[in-house]
């Protein structure tokens, strides 16, 4: 199969590779870039375990071709932490409120929550439940996830300048 050149900025670093055009973005991230925090759960865009942020939008990377993501900026779960050992408020809230049990859906759940809180202020519980309805969790029954997102919202409110910081994180080169 004829290979295609792609150039994708992943967590601030430019990644270039020659890949088969049929390669899914999820596999590009996991196998070419080596970031295994993006998980594959269902192969059919239902479960959302593979959610990443592509040019500021939450997408399910198991049904995006890597060639479609050429020249885009991707944020994965590994890029969300702020430098060494500093959790993003959404990650911290998921730890504090036990927003997971097995942890497999967690990366996607956190990135969808991040996208929500970055784009909407003062979301209600009902809105949170609607916003994460594309991310399936089989363990928690969602109560602790909803509590985590509420907590993250409060933490981000207190921080104030969080939104600007997030804008920066997708373009900053990480060393």
């Amino acid at each position: 199969m004829e290979k295609k050149q792609v150039s994708i900025i992943v967590n601030g670093e430019r990644k270039e590779a020659e890949i088969e055009p049929r390669m899914l973005l999820a596999h590009f991230l996991r196998e070419v870039v080596g970031l295994t925090g993006t998980h594959i759960g269902c192969d059919t865009t239902n479960c959302g375990a593979c959610t990443v942020i592509l040019n500021g939008r939450a997408v399910k990377s198991c049904t995006v071709l890597a060639v479609q993501a050429n020249n885009t900026k991707i944020l994965t779960i590994e890029g969300l932490s702020r430098g060494q050992n500093k959790l993003h408020p959404v990650q911290k809230a998921f730890v504090d409120k036990q927003g997971f049990q097995c942890g497999y859906c967690t990366s996607g759940m956190i990135l969808t929550s991040y996208w929500l809180l970055k784009n909407r202020k003062n979301v209600s519980e009902e809105e949170i439940r609607a916003a994460i309805s594309g991310n399936l969790c089989r363990c928690t029954g969602y109560d602790s996830i909803v509590e985590s997102i509420k907590e993250a919202q409060e933490m981000m409110k207190e921080e104030g300048d969080a939104l600007e910081h997030e804008q920066e994180i997708t373009v900053r080169s990480k060393r």
Partner: peptide, 12 residues
Amino acid sequence: LSEKLVTGKGRF
């Protein structure tokens, strides 16, 4: 374990 799982460092 919690921190691993929220940062994509779990090992499945």
